[in-house]
Design a protein around this nucleic acid. Structure first.
Length: 272
DNA sequence: AATCTCGTCAACCGCTATTTC
DNA sequence: AGAAATAGCGGTTGACGAGAT
């Protein structure tokens, strides 16, 4: 084997581009059952002709059940602008303050319209004194309490550095320091993404955390299969696999319940 | 009706950081 | 300690849809 970094995946024969329903289902079903301890090995084990990187991106940016889909609220947008002023293009860091939002989504929103909005000065930058020169405050704008005698940026930068270095400062604490109410970030109208195949929203039944096997079990050790089934039902509906007519006919043609099929132990035996 | 332009966003690429051996 | 493997991040691209011409 030669020196240097190995390619992330075998490039030959792998699918690229938009994910199909079937690929989504395979990925969801596999992760639901086994989690994602090893992205590199996952596609092969899940029967996907994708590289692990592509699977991870698809999952984290789109299929993850805790993703909040829909328009960004004014509060969220304001938070992004404020955090961007402080952190720069640290999209993943910014995303950590916006539960349910992905770094990719935030990056897109920033590049498409928030950048212009920020540049146009609609959202005043955070300054000591905290009052806006234009007078009226924006509805829902986040007020950052500052002491005019104190260099808030310096303090926040220090706090952030400390946080990043030692993890002593939780994100929520940092957010509080900014004066951002976290609970205000959880309210968003649900919107279906344009024609998306798999807009798995957060308004369906909760699912057990597949990364924590014990979360799928009751105290007595029995699995919450009922909850899993409920979630799978919801998933199939969200994916359009339980729609009336054509989709359902197509589904029947595939000889039964694909989700259940993917979940059969004899299909996946990754850790044998 | 056809074509063009622009906005949006999912997905890819290349790189760095972290973990493992 | 250092190399390899893997995960994660940020920049960029390209497909698609909507509105304008």
């Amino acid at each position: 084997m030669g020196r240097g970094r190995a390619p992330c995946c075998e490039k030959i024969g792998l699918n690229k581009g938009t994910w199909t329903e079937e690929e989504d289902m395979k990925l969801i079903a596999y992760i639901h059952k086994y989690g994602h301890q090893n992205w590199r090995a996952l596609p092969k084990l899940a029967g996907l002709l994708r590289c692990g990187k592509s699977c991870r991106l698809r999952w984290t940016n789109y299929l993850r059940p805790d993703i909040k889909r829909g328009n960004f609220t004014k509060d969220e947008e304001d938070t992004i602008i404020k955090l961007h002023a402080l952190l720069g293009n640290k999209w993943s860091k910014i995303a950590s303050f916006l539960p349910g939002r992905t770094d990719n989504e935030i990056k897109n929103v920033w590049n498409t319209h928030l950048k212009k909005r920020a540049a146009s000065g609609e959202q005043q930058p955070v300054t000591n004194g905290a009052s806006t020169s234009t007078g009226d405050r924006m509805a829902g704008a986040i007020e950052i309490p500052v002491d005019p005698t104190v260099d808030m940026f310096g303090i926040l930068d220090d706090a952030l550095s400390t946080s990043m270095q030692s993890n002593e400062m939780e994100d929520s604490v940092f957010l509080e320091t900014l004066g951002v109410r976290q609970d205000s970030l959880w309210t968003s109208p649900q919107k279906q993404s344009r024609g998306s195949v798999a807009s798995v929203g957060t308004d369906g039944p909760s699912i057990p955390d597949v990364r924590q096997p014990e979360a799928c079990e009751e105290a007595d050790g029995t699995r919450r299969d009922g909850q899993r089934e409920e979630w799978l039902d919801y998933l199939e509906k969200e994916l359009g696999l339980r729609d009336e007519g054509e989709a359902w006919d197509r589904w029947d043609e595939m000889e039964g319940d694909l989700v259940a099929t993917f979940l059969q132990d004899d299909i996946f035996s990754p850790y044998d």
